[in-house]
Design a protein around this nucleic acid. Sequence first.
DNA 1: ATTGCGCTTTGCAGCGCTGCAAAGGACTAT
DNA 2: ATAGTCCTTTGCAGCGCTGCAAAGCGCAAT
Lengths: 340, 340
Amino acid sequence: MRETTLRDVADLAGVSPRTVSNVVNGYARVTDATREKVERAIAQLGYRPNVLARNLATGRSGQIVVVVPYLDTPYFAELLQGIIPAARKLGYNVLVDQTDGDREHEHELIGRGSRRFLFDGMIFSPLGLSQEDLAVRDPDLPLVVLGERSSDGTFDHVGIDDVAASTDAVAHLISLGRRRIAAIGDQPYPTGEAAQLRTQGFRAAHAAAGRPVDESLIISTARFNRVDGATAMAALLDRADPPDAVFCYSDLVASGAIHALHQRGLRVPEDVAIIGYDDIEDGRYSSPTISTIQPDKRAIAQMAVDRLVKRITSPSPVPGVEWRAEHRLIARESTLGVTS
Amino acid sequence: MRETTLRDVADLAGVSPRTVSNVVNGYARVTDATREKVERAIAQLGYRPNVLARNLATGRSGQIVVVVPYLDTPYFAELLQGIIPAARKLGYNVLVDQTDGDREHEHELIGRGSRRFLFDGMIFSPLGLSQEDLAVRDPDLPLVVLGERSSDGTFDHVGIDDVAASTDAVAHLISLGRRRIAAIGDQPYPTGEAAQLRTQGFRAAHAAAGRPVDESLIISTARFNRVDGATAMAALLDRADPPDAVFCYSDLVASGAIHALHQRGLRVPEDVAIIGYDDIEDGRYSSPTISTIQPDKRAIAQMAVDRLVKRITSPSPVPGVEWRAEHRLIARESTLGVTS
DNA sequence: ATTGCGCTTTGCAGCGCTGCAAAGGACTAT
DNA sequence: ATAGTCCTTTGCAGCGCTGCAAAGCGCAAT
């Protein structure tokens, strides 16, 4: 049996298809009598508009897509908790896609692909993509970039001040009297911009305290996840002069590092203090609880959606905005120890 | 500037639009000469097919949606890691939506809404919806349900044997000599079916060991998350006769419970043994590592996608299948203690 | 009685693509 | 030379909806 269409409803109600459309969309002025007739017909036939057809006719889909590297990274999952309701409130439906941090895939998504037509705009958190890659993006696609890139003026960028936040984190370790501070999570140019900014903060904090940086304590990892954190920590502990504190570039890395420490029977923070980044829920429940940098996720989410929708609805080109959310240092047990 | 269309390409290549379509879709036999002409024109104009138009014409969208209660629940995030590649391999794009476990919202998604047209099928993990609610679903929508419901024969159901798995978990605690075993995560009828099956397993294990069940040790929670786990555990510890082991209905609940124990200076498993459910990555890294029930997530994901695609592509009605994936008991530190 | 106004309703065309079936063309068999 | 066959290419119509602008209509003003 065929799906009922606008025309079927129109026939039953004795009006033109256009009028049914007007009722369905709440458009224009429709007399109460007409509206009621049409609504009765709709109910009777169980009519539902075909969004596909509507989208084709209007050229817009009412959907925005949020593209993240990994859905199983709690930071993104938590960010989405802010993005989804914010977008819904503005009448947009949110769908999520993941790239596995794969450069090809990311490229395809921001490039001039045919999926373009499915979405009115995109909130994108790049990982494998370098700044140059971003240049080949589809200029038609309203875009808000999350994270650490800076905008070239044709899209918006929303994030926190990574250098300042990282400086705060490391300064905290220094203020606790730690002498040999390692960093886990650096990544080489050109793709690891987030990581490089954090390393920059790491250096800045040392400089501000008049301390030299031991370059051998800056450890690169492929990803910001637990496995890599544990592996890097284990490697540090195998050395003759292990660190007494570690700045981890994400809470997941920190969680992995703590795991590696516990496996060797070392105590956090007595033997090694750990600070993470992102403030995921996990860190508030782990043992010890993880000191971290807390970005204002709600503000980031709200801002990203606002900017994107502005971009979608504005007929004229919108200048790219660089927007920094607040961040806070949250000191917990992994640096302060158990306080009671 | 207008987006280039099939017709533009046809004009430039000197062929009919239909032929361009054939080339684009790899349809039919097209001579190499023609194909090359067309491809040159496509490249020259930077043509990309309008998926919206294609979808309208074909009536299919090539997208499937995975609907989960909460994206920030690691179990779902991990499951998606299996679903997304499996679906991609079959030519489907996966989009994710979350319901917040809200019954209204879930209802809307499986009902006869207009979003129906955006997706060829749905993999759905219900939470707030009761078995009766599922009955009002859109019969046209190919559907695979994850989790604990049983199928009414009009859709497929994929999950593990929750009763058996829960029995295994509790039997493990009993075998370790624990005497007062609590359960955290029960939920009342009619929505909390997953929880009820686990409670059933909890009872079954007691019965098998010839032990009575202390009903007061079965604690209900609103969700399977950390906060609720911590709160419930704290309440148990406030009692005169606290348990010496707890079966938590998810690893998140277990994580919360362990947190509550540590806050009181109690040791896991020496004072209280904890077992969780789901085997999320978190539990492999926490201190102590969390014993758990490991569902075969990869198999669940693969099966869900296979069944859904079969349903989408089959012209005739497909009978509903009830499919159970394997599960394993993984004993870690939270029940065995630190072994070295 | 005629004109003009404002509101509601309508008809038309078209969004860009594909399904279908038939037309065209090259080539082989008779 | 003619008919038949097979493969490639095409034309048409339509997916179901909305933008646009004009038509219809009731009512007040002249």
